[in-house]
Design a protein around this nucleic acid. Structure first.
Lengths: 251, 251
DNA sequence: GCTACACCCTCACGTTACGTGAGCGTCAAG
DNA sequence: CTTGACGCTCACGTAACGTGAGGGTGTAGC
């Protein structure tokens, strides 16, 4: 019986890691290969399997220490680890998005020559804004008219503008919340009025928002967790209520 | 003239950092305070200002080394740094999202008792799938019917199912690409036929997808960069074409 | 058999942004 | 003058390797 044996270099190329990494995993006992007479590391099938599992969990962001206690464990133990890790990653993602948001604002103020101080930055920080994904969007649909318009307008706003903008949004959200708490259905005249204010707001600050585009936005409010989350910060269920109201108003 | 002077502890509490952090910034010359006769660190207004700026950039994920060369620089130099940093963060965010995706799959296979090996995981990995944001979505709109349906169905799929699913999607995307490359307009009968196949696919694998819901999805394909990106992986401009085709078919 | 040359080995220090004591001085209150 | 809170300076530890230094091993070609 011939067993496939590989040397460090082979494994490194196969698994797309450096030799040092394999040395390290050997050192900490994570993936310990056999040795040849001359002391060369020899990787057999079991070691390769183990390495692949290790790399899989590493890819998911687990620490090597955690991986040590995970690999070889039964399914149920791994599952809870996965779930914990997911929460962690979710938090990281959110943090990164907030950072992106903050950077956009910083860039914006730099270009408009305004200077926000630390508190002013915090003031606007953490709030939702379509400008959040500007650069990302620019690469993908940078030639859409609505998008161009939005960039052109937003690029000229001063800090005061943004604060006014924010105040307006807060007011609209508050209006929706009031209706919702009062038990007034989304498909009512009162809701329709706020819907219209919302659409006007977008048209004023970002781009011409037709009823059709508005309807599309409304769908995204519940379909895209990013939107849902940001809106629901202002009140539980707000995104769903707004979505319904916008849908009702446009039909 | 009385100048406000603060000691390390004061500053640490104010800025919400540890004393060690301030020591460190002093050591590397990032924020160097004055000293009292007895050697105590004394922070004046200029140092506090500088510290705030440092912390701001730290919040944005810059390394201390980079911050060293950024603080105190004129606006234009900072802007390019901000833009570079933004790209970096964007990449990180994408990576995290891919990790979330992979974790979801791993959890899924663990719970359904299937075991995917490394290659099988990679095989499905990196492809777009509505299940991507399941947990996230669960918290937000876990009681939507379409969502419940989707979870119920997807939770029972085996690895083979996912691969078939993936093959089907690839085929549909390829069909759209062919039409697009052939210069056939999105608002044509041929495109409409593929649109219908797409809708049927979603209805079959995830949830009952009405024409209305499908129209909403189509809008998201260009409105949400995450969707756009994932779809455009299969071909530049595919998302936009699909979006147009779906819009044309539903009007 | 000898020489390249590619490949392997083991130290062991460097990296980032601090955390965490150890051992010891300083200051204001009682 | 003690006491406790606070400050100081080393200096090693952390995570996951990167990066040489200095020195064996294996084999292909002459």
């Amino acid at each position: 019986m011939i067993t496939k044996t590989l040397t460090v270099g082979d494994v490194a190329r196969l698994a797309n890691v450096t030799i040092r990494t394999l040395h390290h995993y050997d050192e900490i006992g994570l993936v310990v290969p056999e040795r040849s007479d001359s002391g060369y590391r020899i990787y057999g099938v079991p070691q390769i399997d183990r390495l692949q599992e290790v790399l899989f969990f590493r890819e998911l962001g687990f620490s090597l220490k955690d991986i040590t206690s995970i690999v070889g464990e039964p399914t149920y133990a791994r599952e809870s680890a996965l779930i914990r890790q997911r929460k962690l990653l979710e938090a990281k993602t959110e943090r990164l998005m907030a950072m992106l948001d903050a950077i956009d604002r910083a860039i914006e103020t730099d270009t408009t020559g305004e200077i926000m101080n630390y508190e002013e930055k915090l003031e606007v920080f953490g709030d939702f804004d379509p400008a959040e994904y500007e650069d990302e969007a620019k690469e993908r649909w940078g030639d859409s008219d609505a998008y161009k318009q939005s960039v052109k307008r937003t690029s000229q706003y001063t800090k005061d503008d943004w604060l006014r903008n924010k105040a307006e949004v807060s007011e609209i959200y508050a209006a929706f919340m009031n209706l919702m708490r009062a038990g007034i259905p989304p498909a009512s005249d009162q809701a329709a009025e706020v819907v219209e204010r919302h659409r006007a707001h977008i048209s004023h600050w970002y781009y011409d928002c037709s009823k059709e585009i508005h309807a599309g936005l409304g769908q995204m409010y519940v379909a895209d967790p990013r939107f849902t989350k940001n809106i629901d910060k202002h009140g539980e269920g707000l995104a769903a209520y707004m979505s319904d109201a916008i849908a009702a108003a446009s039909s």
